[in-house]
């Protein structure tokens, strides 16, 4: 610990608003309640896309059907893009292809209008090279996409602070002091500044996920990918993590979120898609509408799995599975 740490912490608190990874100088607002729209009214049409996916095809070697089949979408700057879907629909695989952890067999992935990954369908399914993931992306490119995984992925051999400062120091060659300062500010923002010297195994699941978010944010990614980040958490820890993500949304961070938390999805999404068996079956710019009155039968069906109703005596078999009550 260097001298003046307390001052830094203090400074970090005061300047927290300037820490938004997008450089937004908006001051930190109170947590937004579920269901309301961003007071700044995020603009939609005509804004530049941070991420564009065009006709993406992902197929594992030896598999008959692709895991992801002709997926296209774009995520404008500052927008929150939520992906819903049943298990095995390809949600996580989609995030992994975007993060560069899986090679793709067709289509393109563009970051800021620049192609970062493309697959040639005519070449068929490429055999993976050993145990490696596709290794074409530059370091710079990889740090521009942040990702938080479902399971705890903190490095257990590093303290909380080292987990956060390692990448900026080793990868971005930033000074140790500067990385430390920003790490402490970020940890303070998620309420974990006092745990900076703790080991990951001393933290609760929710605390670990919050550290993982800080570890990704410190690289100032242009987009953050969240892969069911609360799926492995006890219910009471879910909220502390989701609130952090809500704050980031309010600060204008572009995000792509895979989640099973319907109330959270409804509250945070600007754009919502339903993925089923590798295809986008419904896309909506109106999350409220999607949850109350989905356009497709598949979406209705999916949302109904989140409601529970008893069969009462009258109207046997007449199950009123209203997707509108999918707000669990």
């Amino acid at each position: 610990m260097t001298d003046g740490q307390e001052n830094r912490l203090e400074a970090g608190r005061e300047s927290a608003g300037t820490l938004g990874p997008t450089g937004s100088a908006r001051s930190m607002e109170p947590l937004r309640s579920s269901g309301t729209t961003d007071p700044e009214g995020r603009t939609g049409v005509g804004q530049r896309s941070v991420l564009e996916v065009e006709h993406l095809v992902k197929q594992y070697p030896g598999a008959d059907v692709p895991v992801l089949n002709d997926i296209s979408f774009r995520i404008p700057k500052g927008k929150v893009f939520v992906v819903l879907g049943p298990s095995g629909s390809g949600k996580s695989t989609l995030l992994r292809t975007i993060a560069g952890l899986e090679p793709i067999q067709g289509g393109r992935i563009l970051l800021d209008g620049r192609t970062v990954e493309s697959g040639d369908a005519s070449k068929g399914v490429r055999a993976p090279r050993g145990n490696r993931v596709s290794g074409t992306r530059s370091t710079d490119l990889r740090t521009r996409i942040g990702m938080v995984f479902q399971s705890y992925d903190l490095f257990p051999n590093k303290t909380v602070l080292d987990n956060v400062t390692m990448a900026p120091v080793l990868v971005q060659k930033r000074s140790r002091d500067e990385a430390r300062k920003e790490a402490l500010e970020l940890l303070d923002r998620v309420g974990l500044a006092d745990r900076k010297d703790a080991w990951p195994n001393e933290l609760s699941g929710g605390q670990r996920q919050r550290v993982a978010i800080c570890r990704a944010l410190i690289l100032h990614p242009e987009i953050m990918l969240f892969d069911e980040v609360t799926a492995a958490l006890d219910p009471e820890m879910v909220r502390e993590v989701l609130q952090v993500i809500l704050e980031l949304a309010d600060q204008g961070l572009t995000m792509m979120i895979v989640t099973h938390e319907m109330a959270f999805a409804r509250g945070i999404a600007d754009h919502i898609v339903l993925l089923d068996r590798g295809s986008l079956v419904e896309e909506s710019d109106d999350p409220e509408r999607f949850f109350t009155d989905p356009a497709t039968e598949r979406a209705r069906q999916f949302l109904s799995t989140f409601t529970y109703e008893r069969r009462r005596g009258d109207g046997v078999g007449e199950q009123a599975h209203q997707a509108g009550q999918g707000n669990v």
């Binding site: 993931v133 996409i145 942040g146 995984f149 399971s151 992925d153 590093k158 990448a167």
Partner: peptide
């Protein structure tokens, strides 16, 4: 996932080995 996290953070294979895998 340790390897993958390191990769997403931009670590080189060598950095991943010395700082994450070997310890």
């Amino acid at each position: 996932i340790q390897r993958e996290s390191a990769r997403v953070l931009g670590f080189s294979p060598r950095q991943t080995l010395t700082h994450i895998i070997l310890p």
